[in-house]
Computed example of a mutant assay.
Amino acid sequence: MMRMTGIALYFILSGIALYGGFVLDADWAPVAGGGAAMLFGASAATDRARRVPPVVLRLFSISFAAAATLTVFKVFPMQVLIMFLAAGMAWFAYELRGGGSRLRGRAATALFAAACLLFLPVPGVHKPVPSAPSDYSTSVEAGRILAPNVKSRAVAAAEWLARSWTEASAAGTAPEEAARTGAPLASPEASEDFAALYSLPFEVPPALYRTEGAATDPHALMKLLARWNDAVEGDVTQGQTVMGIGTVAADGSIGMVEPFEAYVEAASLAKPKALFVPVDGYLRARSVDKELLVVPVARFEEMLYFLNEPVMFWPLRNFGLFCH
């Protein structure tokens, strides 16, 4: 009875570790895997059937515990621990199959199949896929300032399975309200009056770039554009939907983000009037969608310069800006 309880707890902790690793990418996932490794070692020590030599089980238990420890300290990737968890599941499935009961035999077959899928991961399970864009627009009357989002297939599948009835009840919400999910960047100085310093489209106050998170946030380019648009008179987007990908350094230069192609694919689905990308990503973006107006910008000011032109000239201005 104690052994069956240990096996049940092993599968519960393994499931928690797999959910935390595959779906949440949580730091605590290896800890749950470590608990499963300890349970495997304790259970293997009480194995009286001797279906395999005891020394093999001991070596595997030690390796399992070492892999869990090294994964906790980020020496090993989570995938290594997942393989050990899968191997443990396969072993317990093999033990259950030897119980003689038809129900236990079927359960063992299902567990063994699940273990094989984990040990030989499903192709593309971690591949980024497009997600709903974040909307940083500050006014429903102005154009839309969007930033693309991506998520792994595993996360997308888990979110689909976990969708609650409250999301269905929110389906009638106005698009302008439901889509505004983006969180703005933290302002550097609340007392700074940027509007008094703005001189479209050539000068940008350096304080705008000294914003927490701008150097690492893939949405930084669009978040700063939203702050700019909120501070100046008029609508710099001219009523159009624009999107952008890129970090913004302290000097205003635009940096690359990864997975870049996945972000471009997500942006393409939203069909913006223009997509702003770092100069280094122009050709990569064009390889994803040749119909999309992709605008390469090296600095934040270049995006403002582009947006200040009449919309009908955007394609021509993009060619000149890229050549420059």
Rank of each mutant, 00 (worst) to 15 (best):
1 M>H: 10
5 T>P: 00
11 F>Q: 10
14 S>N: 10
15 G>R: 10
19 Y>V: 03
22 F>C: 02
24 L>C: 05
25 D>M: 10
29 A>E: 08
30 P>S: 05
32 A>Y: 08
34 G>M: 12
35 G>P: 00
35 G>L: 12
36 A>P: 04
36 A>D: 09
39 L>N: 04
39 L>W: 07
40 F>G: 07
43 S>F: 00
48 R>V: 06
56 V>I: 04
58 R>V: 07
60 F>Q: 05
63 S>G: 13
65 A>I: 12
65 A>W: 05
67 A>C: 13
67 A>Q: 02
68 A>C: 08
75 V>L: 14
79 Q>A: 15
82 I>T: 11
84 F>N: 03
85 L>M: 10
89 M>Q: 11
95 E>W: 05
95 E>A: 08
96 L>N: 06
97 R>F: 12
100 G>Y: 06
100 G>S: 06
100 G>N: 06
101 S>I: 02
104 R>H: 04
110 A>D: 06
113 A>G: 05
120 L>D: 00
120 L>Q: 01
121 P>A: 09
122 V>N: 01
123 P>D: 03
124 G>C: 09
127 K>H: 13
128 P>I: 08
130 P>N: 08
132 A>H: 12
132 A>S: 15
135 D>P: 05
135 D>T: 08
135 D>M: 05
140 V>M: 07
141 E>Y: 14
144 R>E: 09
145 I>P: 00
145 I>W: 00
148 P>V: 08
148 P>F: 09
148 P>H: 04
151 K>R: 12
153 R>P: 00
156 A>P: 00
156 A>R: 13
159 E>T: 10
161 L>C: 03
165 W>Y: 04
168 A>Y: 12
169 S>L: 14
171 A>I: 04
172 G>R: 06
173 T>M: 13
177 E>V: 08
178 A>L: 09
180 R>E: 13
182 G>I: 01
183 A>E: 11
184 P>M: 13
190 A>E: 14
203 E>T: 15
203 E>R: 12
209 Y>L: 03
211 T>Y: 06
212 E>V: 10
212 E>F: 11
218 P>K: 11
220 A>E: 06
221 L>W: 09
222 M>T: 09
222 M>F: 02
223 K>A: 15
227 R>T: 11
228 W>M: 07
231 A>V: 03
234 G>K: 12
238 Q>G: 14
241 T>M: 07
241 T>H: 01
243 M>G: 14
246 G>E: 02
246 G>D: 09
248 V>M: 03
255 G>R: 01
256 M>A: 13
258 E>C: 01
262 A>K: 02
264 V>Q: 01
265 E>W: 01
265 E>D: 07
270 A>R: 07
271 K>R: 15
273 K>Q: 13
274 A>N: 04
277 V>E: 06
279 V>W: 02
285 A>D: 04
286 R>N: 09
292 L>P: 08
299 R>G: 02
303 M>V: 12
305 Y>I: 13
311 V>D: 06
313 F>K: 14
320 G>V: 00
321 L>H: 01
321 L>C: 04
